[in-house]
Amino acid sequence: MPIPGFVVALRSKIGQAPLPLSGVTAVVFDDLGRVLLVRRTDNSRWALVTGCLEPGEQPAAGAAREVMEEAGVDVTVERLVSVEALDLSIAPNGDQVYWLNVGFRCRLRRGHAHVNDDESMEVAWFDLDALPELDPHQARCLALASADKPDAWFVRSPET
């Protein structure tokens, strides 16, 4: 997967040590109620569209950009779904990242979904009752985006 230039520059200074980064997850629905998934090239698993925000990029714009880059379709970002600090992840190259992830519900505006970069090997629409297995974080994000609740989900701070 291509690593953003600003991350490459940071990695040249800190190596593979844990790096906090902001990312987005786009849960894209079409007019038939199907969800867009991509099969990732790094682990061959089906996933929602995700990506790293560029410095100064607004999260909703980043979500729409990632969908266009990975699946070649234009979307409307409808609402915020979740804000979540994810557990430490280790990339195949050994880089460690703590992602602050912002999830969005999106709607297909136009275009035909297809593999549009080297991050995916397949792109497809899935009915909600015929989904492949998703990582727990992504399954939660999809469930939240599918629910008819306007409020965003987040982990509540512990009561003191």
Rank of each mutant, 00 (worst) to 15 (best):
P4E: 12
F6M: 06
V7E: 12
V8K: 11
A9L: 08
A9W: 08
A9T: 04
L10A: 09
K13D: 09
L19P: 00
P20S: 09
G23L: 02
A26L: 05
D30F: 08
D31S: 14
D31G: 04
L32V: 02
R34T: 01
R34Q: 13
V35I: 08
V38T: 08
R39Q: 15
R40Y: 08
R45Y: 10
W46K: 07
T50M: 06
T50P: 00
E54N: 03
E54H: 04
G56H: 10
G56S: 07
E57L: 00
P59E: 14
A63S: 11
A63E: 10
E66G: 07
V67C: 06
E69Y: 02
E70Y: 00
E70D: 10
E70R: 09
A71Q: 01
G72S: 09
V73D: 03
V75H: 05
T76A: 11
E78H: 06
E78Y: 05
E78S: 12
E84W: 08
A85N: 11
L86Q: 15
L88W: 14
L88E: 15
L88A: 05
I90F: 07
A91K: 06
A91L: 10
P92I: 11
N93F: 11
G94N: 08
G94R: 05
V97E: 14
V97G: 02
N101F: 00
F104V: 01
R105E: 02
R107I: 01
L108W: 11
R110A: 13
H114T: 08
V115A: 11
D117F: 03
M121T: 13
E122V: 00
V123L: 06
D127A: 13
L128R: 13
L131K: 07
D135S: 13
H137S: 14
A139W: 07
R140Y: 04
L142S: 04
L144I: 06
D148N: 13
P150D: 12
P150F: 10
A152D: 04
W153D: 03
W153L: 02
V155M: 13
T160V: 08
T160L: 13
